[in-house]
Design a protein around this nucleic acid. Structure first.
Length: 476
DNA sequence: TTTTGAGTTGTTCGA
DNA sequence: GTCGAACAACTCAAA
């Protein structure tokens, strides 16, 4: 049995349960030294955005506490990942390093190099899969190529799955008696200097306990009608597990197994939720096989698409002032809570990309900075889907109509009223198209278009026709 | 080997 | 008001 300690390098697997790297370290029988390395500069373009950093701060503080219950200290260091690991190996006399893999292209490259250097130095280094149901390189179609359509991909995953049951947290973790210096989480400056996080904080409990509670609550109620209720943003119909999954406070296997074993495991709603876990897998699959997609369209011909970048238009979308109430409500929900309902994300993305002709990358960048669940694989998949330039993308002629979508999925205007108070007194009949409302209705509701609520950034038909013409031109 | 049918999330138009 | 067709092109697997 090894007498030297094992470093467990924590990254996006901030949990003790169902954590293969931690499990391996504990199983080795030696002392366990958990480490978090703050290296935002080393993550390049896709370093965590503002909302993610807020979440990360709290997730780390929570992880630190969980280790303290075992009498173990989480070591926090900042700097270049490799240098920090090398230094810690020297300081502690550890001979082994373990971690759970990440799959973002830049991170893969960095980690591969770290693994090589440390192995060449005679250290034992092992990495594990702790954040996906399956390795992205493993799933191939019959021709040996990566899937580009979700349904066959997910069928293949289900038919050939090798995942089992999630493992509980270790009952004992042997710490070290060595005195190892650690920075404080506060000193990482993850929290915003301007206190915009007060409202976000009231919406979320960014801890392991919060993740467990949310999963339990979801299974107890929203999961039952997930198939239909998840489309209505006024309802608590989605799982809201995305940020926990992103930071690994809960594993996809834990979520999958819990729902699968619930009374909804075989219902349409349950299957639909499991397929959403599948979409997360599909996102990582695509990112692995097509690693240029965070920046460039999967379908190369879209590089010629006639986007019309306009900083002012983009700004009005970001701030929730497009004049389309369902879009504005969504963009303000995002700003206030760090999250946006899935249905509204599609509508907001479609309007930005199609009606306003802004490049999908500018939408992806804004979501990256403002979402607490920002995840490179899912964000890329979602925006390329909306832009019509990705795998299994929405057909170009599928242009969301923000008025119809609003009337269909927010029929009483409850969601719009919650986030766009200027329109709170508008009757449901007009709330999704105030520019068509009779003057006396607007007056009674206290709405002055162009004064206290914007007129639409573009006419619905004009925007739609312009987008369709642009897509058509691309094909010819 | 070739063919066939289906594929997350829509909208409009005309019968 | 309801309903089906049209709006592409391509991927993938089963027949």
């Amino acid at each position: 049995m090894p007498s030297s300690p094992t470093l467990v390098w924590f990254r996006q697997d901030l949990r003790l349960a169902d954590n293969p790297a931690l499990r391996a370290a504990v199983a080795s029988g030696g002392e366990v030294i958990p480490v978090y390395i703050h290296n935002i500069k080393g993550e390049g373009t896709w370093a965590p955005g503002g909302a993610s950093r807020w979440w990360l701060h709290h997730a780390l503080a929570d992880l630190e506490q969980q280790f303290q219950r075992f009498g173990v200290s989480l070591i926090i260091r900042s700097g270049d990942s490799l240098s920090v690991l090398q230094k810690l190996l020297t300081e502690t006399g550890a001979e082994q390093v373990v971690w759970n893999r990440r799959y973002e292209p830049a991170i893969v490259q960095r980690d591969t190099q770290i693994k090589t250097v440390l192995r060449n130095a005679g250290k034992k280094v092992e990495s594990f899969n702790g954040s996906l149901l399956h390795e992205p390189s493993r799933v191939k179609n019959l021709s040996g190529n990566p899937f580009q359509v979700f349904t066959p991909f997910w069928k293949n995953c289900l038919a050939n799955h090798q995942w089992g049951e999630p493992e509980k947290a270790p009952s004992k973790i042997k710490g070290t008696s060595l005195k190892i210096s650690s920075e404080t989480i506060d000193s990482l400056n993850l929290l915003p200097k301007i206190k915009w996080d007060r409202t976000i904080a009231t919406f979320w409990n960014p801890t392991r306990a919060g993740a467990e509670k949310r999963l339990a609550d979801f299974v107890a109620s929203p999961a039952k009608d997930y198939d239909t209720a998840r489309d209505f943003p006024e309802h608590d119909g989605t799982s809201r597990l995305s940020p926990y999954l992103h930071f690994g406070q809960i594993s996809p296997l834990e979520a999958y197994a819990r729902v699968k074993a619930s009374p909804h495991g075989e219902t349409k709603s349950g299957q639909r939720f499991l397929a959403e876990i599948g979409w997360r897998e599909f996102g990582y699959h695509l990112l692995h096989h097509f690693n240029h997609t965070p920046e460039k369209p999967l379908r190369a011909e879209f590089e010629r698409f006639p986007w019309a970048p306009d900083p002012q238009l983009l700004r009005s979308w970001q701030k929730g002032r497009t004049g389309f109430p369902i879009v504005d409500a969504g963009m303000r929900q995002l700003w206030q809570t760090g999250w946006q309902h899935n249905r509204v994300r599609m509508i907001a993305a479609s309007v930005l990309v199609k009606h306003l002709l802004q490049p999908w990358q500018s939408g992806a960048t804004w979501f990256w900075d403002t979402l607490v669940d920002a995840d490179l694989a899912s964000n890329t998949l979602g925006w390329q889907w909306a832009g019509g330039c990705g795998a299994d993308a929405a057909p170009y002629f599928r242009v969301f109509n923000p008025v119809l979508q609003g009337e269909k999925f927010d029929p009483h205007g409850t969601y719009v009223r919650q986030y766009v108070p200027e329109l709170a007194k508008m009757p449901a009949e007009w709330i999704h198209k105030p520019w068509e409302a009779p003057a006396e209705v607007l007056k009674a509701a206290g709405v002055e278009l162009g004064v206290n609520y914007p007129t639409p950034a573009i006419g619905l038909n004009e925007g739609r026709d312009r987008a369709l013409a642009a897509f058509k031109k691309l094909r010819s």
